Amino acid sequence: MKTLPLISFRNVCKSWNQVTVLENFNLDVTSGELVVLVGSSGCGKSTLLRMLVGLEPASSGDILVSGNPVSGVGKERGIIFQEPRLFPWLTVTENVLLGLANSPLNSSEKKQLALNMLERVQLADFANVLPSQLSGGMAQRVAIARGIIAHPQILMLDEPFGALDALTRHTLQQQLLELHLSTGSTTLLVTHDVEEAVALADRVIVLSPRPGRIREEVKITLPHTRHRDDIAFIDLCRHIRHLITDVL
């Protein structure tokens, strides 16, 4: 018996004011995959995540999770944006606890989970400080901890490291991969960083310029940890960049 994909996009189209952003987009994602979406600006990458999380509807077509149509937001789907979007009047721990707002756990259990998650993202020493006292990379780690703490079945990340310096970005990429592998979540990541895509993904989905369609699916079979100076890694990056920049 064929396994039902966890996520299915079926002939999905999205238009705004007579401008077609996505057209006949089709993609299946199986449970536990880490899939990265890349492509030129305006091709609909972030729009796909917003539709999957339930923040806006498709113009036509179907978006399914476990065979059921997406209708609004759901606790099985979580999203992390490029900006941390932390509440400045709440401590780091209190911001992370927002990810457990709908949990049946008592307050003591929730707090312990939050502290454990902060330990995993190396922020335990900052549990009681306010966001204004954090660097950009630290604030983004808080946002990741908040997004992951409830163990959503599907985790989406929209350019989460785009505004960070190279060293911090590489560190958080590795932490994201470790969290993905340890939690078994299904992860969809949007990025403009081709090296980031090849370093993390099981599959890289390259979208064509607007209207976005899948130009090519690139399977990444390199074992983790992936070394960015390896010839195979460099060749994959070169191939994906060519697909993005070679206008059809």
Rank of each mutant, 00 (worst) to 15 (best):
K2Y: 10
S41R: 11
L172H: 11
H224Y: 06
V198A: 01
G212N: 02
V96Y: 01
E196C: 07
N68I: 14
S71M: 11
L176S: 07
I63L: 08
E83V: 08
G147I: 05
V92M: 03
K219G: 14
D202Y: 08
L113A: 12
Q122I: 09
I144Y: 04
G147H: 05
T225P: 12
H224L: 05
K2W: 14
L172S: 11
N17E: 13
S15F: 11
A199M: 02
G61W: 05
E94L: 14
T171S: 14
S15H: 15
A199I: 04
N116I: 11
I63E: 00
N24D: 14
E33R: 10
D230P: 02
L27I: 04
V19G: 05
R238W: 07
A197S: 01
I144S: 03
G39N: 09
R213I: 04
Q140K: 07
W89Y: 13
Q112L: 13
I231W: 04
G212D: 01
I234L: 08
E109F: 04
L177D: 01
P88I: 13
F9K: 04
Q173A: 13
H180F: 15
H192Q: 15
A199K: 00
L27W: 02
L243P: 04
R228F: 03
T191A: 09
E56Y: 12
P223R: 02
N116S: 13
R215K: 15
I231M: 08
E119M: 10
A127V: 03
A143R: 01
V35F: 04
I205F: 09
L130F: 12
I80C: 09
L155Y: 09
I234P: 01
I220Q: 06
L118Q: 04
Q175A: 10
D193V: 01
L4Y: 11
